[in-house]
């Protein structure tokens, strides 16, 4: 098991190296001179030339690559062209709001979706099932910004229970954090509740047809216990997959939500960087997101073994 984890962590290295190579090449192979783009329309050829020199663009491409990789290995993602601050500092500043809201969304979606999906499977083909399925079709179909604005209208503008927008860190008080984070998290969650509930239902329905469910009934075990103890745990692996990939996808979904709720997270940082062609920041963001993807997948694979003893690596 430990060997497996070590092996998986080692396997991250080539993955990240390929990502780094692609990130590097995208920037170098896009048409146009990065120095010219960065210097802007009004720059003189001399200014561009000196910028090229200072960016190291006159070196052969492989030298540039190794210089950049060398920087990366020191944990240095470069300096933002726009603000002049280091990319590390920018990301460190913006990552927490995003991570906190994404985590809250995942917790909420599991807490809502798994019971809903279980209910649907239990009442398969009956009223409760139809209601849950209707809810999840709606959750899928309505775009996040619509959900966001409706939630703002109802809970912030009309009822005035929650603030319209903004962000407070948990360090400023958990209550304040939740008051600000709950609407963005609900906005993000809608689609994942739908997805996870459907997966829970499908997976559980599959499991409920298994022989060991009949065995449990034959032992005289109560229906609820059969459903939860024998059913849900066996249904866990596909649900876990959806939750895990959902978390990674949330990080991209967060862009819209951060705009709607005016949250200073990495979603907005990315948009600003793209608008301003702030390449070092874009590179840093791509590397960060792929790193999180890889990490989350590793955690999911390890979590499988917790739920299913047959899975041994």
């Amino acid at each position: 098991m430990l060997g497996y984890i070590v092996k998986r962590i080692l396997a991250v290295i080539p993955v990240m190296a390929i990502v780094a190579l692609i990130v590097f090449l995208i920037l170098r192979l896009t048409p146009g001179d990065p120095a010219a783009i960065i210097a802007g329309d009004t720059a003189t050829p001399d200014q561009i030339a000196s910028l090229r020199e200072s960016m190291g663009l006159n070196e052969p491409i492989y030298v540039q690559f190794f210089q950049w990789i060398g920087q990366l290995l020191h944990g240095d993602l470069g300096t933002s062209l726009l603000s002049g601050t280091s990319v590390n500092a920018l990301i460190a500043d913006r990552i927490w709001p995003t991570l906190n809201i994404a985590l809250l969304s995942i917790v909420m979606s599991v807490a809502i979706a798994v019971p809903l999906g279980t209910l649907a499977a239990w009442r398969h083909g009956r009223f409760g099932d139809h209601v849950v399925m209707a809810i999840s079709v709606a959750g899928f179909s309505v775009p996040a910004f619509v959900v966001g604005y409706v939630l703002i209208k109802v809970f912030a503008a009309d009822l005035r229970w929650l603030p319209v927008q903004g962000y407070r860190a948990p360090s400023q008080g958990m209550g304040e954090f939740l008051r600000h984070a709950i609407l963005p998290a609900m906005t993000l969650t809608a689609a994942y509740v739908a997805l996870t509930a459907r997966m829970t239902r499908a997976s559980l329905l599959n499991v409920l047809g298994e022989d060991y469910i009949r065995t449990a009934h034959a032992k005289g075990v109560k229906d609820v216990t059969v459903l939860l103890r024998h059913g849900l745990r066996n249904a866990a692996v596909p649900i876990l997959t959806v939750v895990g990939t959902g978390f990674a996808m949330l990080l991209s979904g967060v862009v819209v939500v951060e705009s709607v709720f005016n949250i200073p997270g990495i979603g907005r940082l990315t948009i600003d960087a793209v608008m301003a062609r702030d390449y070092p920041v874009i590179q840093g963001m791509i590397l960060l997101t792929s790193g999180i993807y890889v990490l989350v997948n590793l955690l999911i694979d390890i979590a499988y073994t917790v739920f299913d003893p047959r899975i041994r690596y």
Partner: peptide, 21 residues
Amino acid sequence: MRGSRMSMIFQEPMTALNPVM
């Protein structure tokens, strides 16, 4: 009464037991 006064064993002992318990 199931399991106490009447009980049952099934054909396929691999699938009749819960694999994760």
